[in-house]
């Protein structure tokens, strides 16, 4: 590393990459094993919710969890803070 590079050091962003990947990979793995209708279900639910509440797509989570013998479809919406909606 040269003297110049020392003063122009770039931001440590590896932890951001890791965190983003952890989330997206987990989400894509859930969708992978699950039924084909999940993406469509997610999109249609989003449309319905957004008729009533202005939520960010990131605030809506769909998870299909497999527990011994049965599956749970978990759906969570983080509502926006009051005054922002």
């Amino acid at each position: 590393m040269g003297l110049l590079a020392f003063f122009r050091r770039s931001q440590p962003t590896a932890n951001v990459a890791k965190e983003r990947l952890r989330i997206i990979v987990a989400q894509e793995r859930t969708a992978r094993g699950g039924p084909d209708y999940l993406p469509t279900l997610r999109r249609e639910l989003m449309e319905v919710i957004r008729k009533y509440i202005n939520v960010d797509p990131e605030a809506v989570q769909i998870n299909l969890e497999k527990e011994d013998g049965h599956e749970v479809l978990e759906f969570s919406v983080a509502l926006p803070e009051k005054g922002k909606a």
């Binding site: 770039s10 440590p12 590896a14 932890n15 990459a17 890791k18 990979v25």
Partner: peptide, 17 residues
């Protein structure tokens, strides 16, 4: 070098993901 400065994910990070 870039892993040490936090600019690049480490072997451990990728392995874990």
């Amino acid at each position: 070098r870039r892993v040490a400065t936090g600019e690049m994910m480490s072997v451990g990070d990728v392995k874990e993901i």
